[in-house]
Design a protein around this nucleic acid. Structure first.
Lengths: 107, 107
DNA sequence: GTAGTATATGCGTATGAGTGCATATCTCAT
DNA sequence: ATGAGATATGCACTCATACGCATATACTAC
């Protein structure tokens, strides 16, 4: 079937967006809560949540609640390889100022 | 700068489209004329030409005229690697019925 | 020149994606 | 139960994109 290309194009569509790309790049370093991503991207919380929803519904990230915070993980290996191909190896985890989650507070 | 993600997302955007993806997949097997792609995709000529323009203006394919026919080549190595990553190794070149170019006519 | 074939371009339209904003939901603490 | 912080959802608006179609251009043969 030709919808092999349909399927593949959907994966690329997820990556064809700067904010989503940055989120995924951050998540491949380490899982992170929404407030962490909000601080790194410097975008409103609702905006980050919406992009996370797109990624979640596509199945490339998973969410895990811990008290007030929700931690997101990158779970798609193909996406991880594609990120490595175009962005190079994952960098260091950054601890942005203004993120209240316990992980970022433990400087 | 953060527009590293901007740049990368543009590459992914090109690939986030079934028809363009199929064109690029065909071109990584071998260069091909428009009528070849038109036959493989089973789409109107104008449609194929428009997608080729997008790819050409993005610099991932080049065009080379030979008489009546224009042959397109895949020239972007990163795109070639990304295609290999998600579509697997390139398959055999197909010679579709209904393509008048000399290459396809030499069965 | 004309005719015919291959390819490119321009334009109109409709559908969907991206984004902002208000608000709802969940959880914990008091 | 109330309040506060973290996250999710719903809705509306705008703008880009995909696509179809008519037409223009480029080349060849006669």
């Amino acid at each position: 079937m030709g919808d092999r290309y349909e399927q593949a194009s959907e994966v690329f569509h997820l990556l064809s967006h700067p904010a989503r790309l940055q989120i995924l790049d951050e998540l491949r370093r380490d899982s992170a809560c929404v407030c962490h991503l909000e601080a790194v991207l410097d975008r409103p919380q609702a905006y980050v949540s919406q992009q996370l929803r797109v990624l979640r519904e596509a199945g490339v990230v998973s969410d895990e609640r811990d008290g007030l915070f929700v931690y997101y993980h990158l779970v798609d290996e193909e996406v991880e390889r594609l990120l490595g191909e175009t962005l190079g190896p994952a960098g260091e985890r950054r601890e942005p100022a203004g993120c209240p989650c316990p992980r970022c507070q433990a400087e």
